[in-house]
Design a protein around this nucleic acid. Structure first.
Length: 528
DNA sequence: TCTGGGGTCCTAGGACCC
DNA sequence: TCTGGGGTCCTAGGACCC
């Protein structure tokens, strides 16, 4: 294990909700819930104002609304989150080439591999300041000798935390933590451990390895035995290949048997589109069915060869659904494609196939020297999580492309701008009006849509109501990430100052959208 | 109050082969 | 006639993460 606390974990605080309040100034300092707005929606992120009254991630939205009737409820805007994520990851990559995104809002960084190996603390401080100055988003940062410690450190002082745990303080830091704080210990494992009288990491360390393995199994037992000792050699790795892609959907009302084939086709189409973007094939199709009583069945079919052919994969999905044979109403249907390969078995169109030796396996990489998602914006590599949110061009248009059309009509992938319709309207969406400009949907009833005209760094905006059956409102892309009106003056960066200048020669002349200089402290009165 | 959606990894059991 | 053990692949279910 390394000597220095040079593994950094960065975690954006209440990420989705923070991007929302960044774009919607009228919501600042008021409770916001981002998540599913339907009858079976859950909370993806609650901001700190909503958490104060008990709202939490993964809580049913209906429950959160009862706890916090004053909250503004918004539909997630993934493109906006992806853009802010890209900015965060890009900033981190200036500090080290070894950046491992964990999700849209979280990443590990191995600072020992970068230009600041000699001073990780300064680099970590720089990270949070740069991210704030470029996006207005607040992150929490933790530094430790391992991922385990770095992650716990970033969590120790949220929001806007900055915690460094040097090697000699690790035990003191780790021992009092509840076991549930450890990576891999969820509710079930926590309950099991409690039956052994194990509640804290200190308890865990006192436990025998054989006992842990007996109760938790080989992998989890060994893992916890080591983590309890602060022993976590996992390196920060830049990229991991996706093992599966899929899609699933919970229906507003349970589906009856005769409705299943159509619904499966729908979900499969989304999974296939994701597979198409990966540019390879899959060998195993798994169908997931959740019944009205919440019991969950999965059935899978493995083909002889990986394929990207929609028809073959559809046949397998149909067979898997038949095998699952749900007799009760179905609340969720999912399709997952695994056994992914870069290779896909291609069936060439008849007129091209004759006499061609190109039959069989072709490497998708060979199909075209096509731009990939990551090359579209050179300074980042999307995580598997976000990759589907970003690309606007299918990777290969060339030779013998498999029969997977990216017909891009998921609703969430519609090309913008596009007219807002009663069908596509959702709370929080970005819209534009020819005279009043950019705003977001505050309310929608039938064809009547209320829009609040505001954006990043504007004053809280006025509401106006439109009848979209008679008046045109356009759905538009979200605002780009941009510096906040109130910048942390670079002069207050202290030691980070010189490093900033070195990293970003033009940072000191960067201008805020309203035209004021980014270096002047207190440009807060520059609100439009 | 009634439980999302994207994933990863692990386990146990059975089939099959040598 | 009865009995082996290891390895690999597949499947279903479940825990976990964000």
């Amino acid at each position: 294990m390394r000597e220095d606390a040079s593994v950094m974990h960065v975690d954006a605080d209440a990420f989705f909700a923070s991007v929302e309040t960044r774009h919607k100034p009228s919501l600042a300092r008021s409770p916001v819930l981002v998540g599913g707005t339907g009858p079976r929606g859950v909370v993806a992120t609650a901001n700190y104002e909503a958490r104060a009254v008990g709202c939490r991630s993964a809580m049913p939205m209906s429950q959160a609304r009862v706890l916090c009737p004053a909250a503004t409820v918004l539909t997630p805007r993934f493109p906006a989150y992806a853009a802010h994520s890209a900015l965060i990851m890009g900033t981190l990559r200036q500090l080290s080439p070894l950046v491992q995104p964990v999700s849209l809002d979280e990443a590990f960084v191995d600072l020992a591999a970068g230009p600041f190996a000699a001073d990780p603390v300064t680099a970590a401080d720089l990270a949070r300041r740069l991210i704030y100055n470029r996006s207005g988003l607040v992150v929490s940062v933790g530094l430790g000798r391992s991922k385990l410690i770095a992650k716990l450190a970033s969590d120790a002082d949220k929001p806007h935390g900055f915690t460094v745990v040097p090697g000699e303080n690790e035990d003191e830091f780790l021992m009092p933590k509840p076991v549930g704080a450890l990576w891999g210990v969820g509710p079930a494992t926590e309950a099991t451990l409690r039956t052994l009288g194990i509640r804290t990491v200190a308890d865990l360390r006192a436990a025998g390895r054989d006992d842990l393995v007996r109760v938790l199994g080989d992998a989890a037992g060994w893992n916890l035995y080591r983590l309890a000792r602060g022993d976590d050699p996992r390196p920060v790795v830049v990229e991991r290949e996706a093992k599966s892609v899929g899609a699933e959907r919970t229906f507003a009302q349970d589906l009856l048997r005769w409705e299943l084939p159509g619904a499966l086709e729908d979900v499969l189409a989304r999974a296939l589109r994701r597979l198409g973007r990966q540019g390879g094939g899959a060998r195993t199709v798994t169908v997931k069915v959740r019944l009205s009583d919440f019991t969950t069945l999965t059935r899978s079919v493995t083909l002889a060869h990986p394929t990207a052919e929609a028809d073959q994969l559809r046949e397998a999905a149909d067979a898997a659904l038949t095998a699952a044979n749900p007799v009760e109403p179905v609340r969720l249907l999912g399709v997952s494609l695994s056994g992914l390969t870069h290779w896909a078995q291609l069936r060439l169109p008849q007129d091209e196939a004759d006499g061609a030796a190109v039959d069989g396996l072709m490497a998708s990489e060979d199909l075209a020297e096509a731009p990939t998602v990551s090359s579209a914006s050179p300074d980042r590599v999307p995580t598997p999580d976000e990759s589907h949110l970003l690309d606007d061009a299918p990777p290969d248009e060339a030779v013998g492309r498999p029969a997977l059309e990216d017909d891009a009509d998921d609703g969430d992938e519609e090309r913008l701008p596009a007219p807002l319709t009663p069908h596509t309207v959702a709370l929080g969406l970005d819209v534009s009006h020819p005279h009043h400009g950019a705003g977001w949907v505050v309310r929608a009833e039938d064809g009547l849509v209320t829009v609040r005209f505001e954006g990043p760094n504007t004053r809280p905006g006025p509401d106006r109501r439109f009848d979209i059956r008679r008046e045109l409102l356009m759905r538009v892309d979200p605002p780009e990430p941009c510096p906040p009106a109130r910048l942390t003056s670079l002069a207050t960066l202290g030691k980070a100052d010189e490093l900033t200048a070195m990293l970003l020669p033009d940072e000191s002349t960067r201008r805020t959208p309203d035209g004021s200089s980014g270096t002047s402290a207190g440009s807060s009165d520059s609100l439009v």
